[in-house]
Amino acid sequence: MTFTFVILGVVTLAGAMAAMSLRNLVHCALCLVAAFGGLAGLFLQLDAQFVGLAQILVYIGAVAILIVFAILLTRGSESPQQPIVAGRWLMGVAVAALTFGSLMVSIVTSTLISSANGPKPNVAADISVKKIGAKLMTEYVLPLEVVALLLTAALIGAVIIAMEEQARLAPEGSQSH
């Protein structure tokens, strides 16, 4: 447990906590970004360059922006007056515990941990971006294609929804001119 790990862990956890508990939605989003950044730092510290940088590129560069846009374009950024604790918090706790448990089990039972009784093999060093790419293009090409298909479908779906709305709005718009 190194000094950097402590800092990154604290940033990640504090960001996540703040993202849950702050009143102002934009503040929550920004704290979430801090958590994402801490997570990316953890990945980078583990020498997983591709995952770490993709985390920044996708989560900070795109997902966070999307969240922020969604907040601004819907309810506005005024802080709500009523407390924002969901009614069914018991359910939430259950889901969180379940997720944590399943992750925990999969990590503990993974081959990496069980085989690492001796000195830890330096796994990360030979995982280059090139290797990830080669794996994606050979062994995991089918999942990749499925994901691509899913994303394309989602994109087309979004366009169609937007077009319908535009078609519906168009006559009103032309009248108001």
Partner: peptide, 18 residues
């Protein structure tokens, strides 16, 4: 001299938007 230098560059660029 990073293995993923170009990716790093764009990741840093993406962080400015926020």
């Amino acid at each position: 001299d990073m293995d993923a230098g170009v990716l790093f560059f764009f990741a840093a660029g993406a962080a400015t938007e926020l």
